Simulated scan of single mutants.
Amino acid sequence: MKLKKYLGKLWRADYPASLPGEAEASWERFAAKAFDNKPVKVFRMKPYWKHFAAAAAAVVLLVVSLQLVIDARSGPDFLSVENTGKTIRVVTLPDRSVISLLPGSRLQYAENFRQNRTLNLDGEAYFEVTKKEGAPFRVTSGRTTTTVLGTSFNVKSRVDGSTEVALYEGRVKMEVEGMEQDWKLSPGELFIFNGTGPEVVPFNTRRGGTPLYIDFEKAPLAEIAAYIKDVYGYTVTGDPAIFSERMTMRVRRNEPLDNILKTITDIYDMGSSTDTLRNKIELFIIRPSTKK
C-alpha cells in the first residue's frame, strides 16, 4: 500500500542514523498492529425498513382517524362574548334574554342557542331570562349548573372555583357536579358553593352577596370610590378632604358609570375628568368665581 510505504519512510527518517536496526524493528512492530491484513467483516442490515415504514403509516392513519373523531364530536360552533372594557356590557341573546356582563367576564353559547339554551360563564353576570316552554335555560359556571325557565338572577364565579347565584324573580334549580342532591331557590335566596359544601342564605344575612341594587347609607365617598374601582376598574383621585364626605345613594348593578359620577358631582357641586387611557377619574371642587 502506498500509505504504508510513505509512513514507513517517515518513521525511519525520524530515527538517528546510528540506529538503523532499532528503527526497522520499531516500524515492524507498529505496522503489524496498524496494518493488519485480516479480512474486514461486513455487516449487512436486515430489511427492518419495511417494519418502520409500516409503523409510520399506522401512525399517520391513527392521527387522521383521531382528527376525524374530534371533528365529528365537536358539535355546533360556539360563540364567545367577552367584556374587556371597564363598564358593564349588555348582551341580548337570540332568544331575547338579556345579560349584563361585568368587566373581565366571558360567556360562551352555541350558535343554535334557540334550541340549546345552555351557556358557560367565566366571571359575573346578571341574567333576565325569556321564558320558553320546553327549552330550559342553563348556565354552567365551574362545577355548578343553574337551570331556569324564566327568571332574573345573578351568577358570580371566582378564580378559586367558588360560585354564587342570587335569585331575584322566579325559581331556579341548582346542581353541583359530583353531587346527587339539587337545590331549588326562591326569590331573595343566595346559593353559595365554595368547593366543599353548598349553602343557601338570604341576601341580607351574608356580606358579599349580589343584590340587584347596591345601597350606600351615609357612606363616605371613599367607600363609593372603592366600589367604582372594583366594578368599573377606574381609580378615583382628588383632594383627600373630598373622600371624607358622606352620601346616601342607591346604585343599580348595571348602572352606567357616567350616571354615578353625575350624581356625585351634582350633590357636592364638584367637577370630574376621566382619563380612559390610564383608567383614572379625578374629582375636584368647583370654587365660585371671585370676580365682580
Rank of each mutant, 00 (worst) to 15 (best):
M1Q: 13
K2N: 14
L3Q: 12
L7P: 02
R12F: 10
A13N: 15
A13S: 14
D14F: 13
D14M: 12
S18L: 13
G21V: 06
A25M: 06
A25L: 07
A25C: 00
S26Q: 04
S26I: 06
E28V: 08
K33E: 07
K33T: 03
N37A: 15
V40N: 07
K41N: 11
F43M: 12
M45H: 05
P47S: 12
P47F: 04
Y48K: 08
K50E: 11
K50I: 01
A53K: 15
A55M: 09
A56G: 14
V59E: 01
V63Y: 08
V64Q: 08
V64N: 05
Q67I: 10
Q67Y: 10
L68W: 10
V69T: 06
I70K: 08
S74Q: 14
S74C: 07
G75V: 10
G75C: 09
G75Y: 13
D77I: 03
D77N: 10
E82S: 15
K86H: 15
K86F: 09
T87Q: 15
T87S: 15
R89G: 00
V90H: 08
V91G: 04
L93R: 00
L93H: 00
P94L: 08
D95V: 01
I99Y: 00
G104F: 05
S105V: 12
S105W: 09
S105M: 09
Y109W: 09
A110I: 02
N112G: 09
F113M: 06
Q115R: 13
Q115M: 11
L121Q: 04
L121S: 07
D122M: 07
E124Q: 15
Y126S: 01
F127T: 02
A135L: 02
T144N: 07
V148R: 01
D160F: 11
G161Y: 12
L167M: 13
Y168E: 13
G170P: 06
G170S: 11
V176A: 00
V176T: 05
G178A: 06
M179V: 13
M179K: 15
K184L: 14
L185P: 03
S186E: 14
S186G: 07
F191C: 11
G197Y: 01
G197L: 05
P198N: 06
E199A: 11
E199I: 09
V200G: 12
T205R: 13
G208L: 03
Y213M: 15
L221R: 01
A225N: 00
Y227G: 04
Y227T: 04
Y227K: 03
I228L: 10
I228Y: 05
Y232P: 01
Y232C: 03
Y234L: 02
R246V: 11
T248F: 08
M249S: 10
V251P: 02
N254S: 12
L257D: 00
L257Q: 06
I260N: 02
L261Q: 04
L261T: 03
T265E: 03
D266P: 02
D266N: 12
M270V: 06
S272D: 10
D275E: 05
D275P: 04
R278N: 14
N279R: 08
T290Q: 05
T290H: 07
K292G: 10
